[in-house]
């Protein structure tokens, strides 16, 4: 999430300020392809982090996993793609300076105020409801369901929420890439 929301959006914001974005859009390449190429690269950058996190958890903290491979693969890919697409959309929809600011705020929100590293029950009820429609908790729970399938179950709602954010991120990014001023 941090990778997608912060690194992708700052990368895209920088591409906008330096003129790279404009340059690429002037190439004889279908513009949606530019978006897919960019997201593929970010996917390749962020996916290994899931594997690394699993290994570290196992060696350092002695976690024992009960993998549900289809769920784990789907959850990690969807999480990485959603984060990148939303990050990209942010950077394309906002002025570059504002993008920097928003992403910094998002880092804190994701790391400290999202039930990823702590249980959702520790948050006030209204805030839990907010997290039901934001992508962070659903992504975390889906990943947990993939790693520890004996104690967590994947919920269709979480998948739907994450999928919806993915579609919105894509739609906004696509529009920004194709649009002519």
């Amino acid at each position: 999430m941090v990778m997608g929301l912060v690194m992708v959006s700052q990368g895209v914001a920088q591409a906008r300020t330096t003129g790279t974005f404009t340059y690429l859009r002037a190439l004889p390449v279908p513009r949606p392809l530019l978006l897919f190429a960019d997201l593929t690269v970010w996917l390749a950058v962020s996916l290994p982090s899931v594997a690394v996190a699993l290994l570290v958890a196992h060696w350092r903290y002695g976690f024992d996993f009960s993998f549900d491979w289809p769920v784990l693969l789907l959850a990690s890919t969807l999480t990485a793609v959603t984060a990148s697409a939303v990050g990209c959309a942010l950077a394309l929809a906002l002025p570059p300076m504002l993008t920097q600011l928003v992403t910094q705020v998002l880092v804190f929100f994701v790391m400290l105020f999202s039930p990823i590293t702590f249980h959702a029950s520790q948050l006030p009820e209204w805030f839990q409801m907010v997290h039901d429609v934001l992508p962070f908790r659903p992504a975390a729970d889906l990943l947990r369901a993939g790693m520890l399938s004996d104690s967590y179950n994947a919920s269709a709602w979480d998948l739907a929420v994450l999928g919806a954010w993915c579609v919105v991120g894509f739609a906004v990014s696509l529009r920004a890439v194709i649009r002519r001023a």
């Binding site: 591409a15 330096t18 003129g19 790279t20 404009t22 340059y23 690429l24 002037a26 190439l27 004889p28 279908p30 513009r31 002519r180």
Partner: peptide, 18 residues
Amino acid sequence: DPAAARRCVALQAQSQAP
């Protein structure tokens, strides 16, 4: 049809190429 037109144009932009 800007996409078709772009295939026939090569642009050296004023900003530096990436």
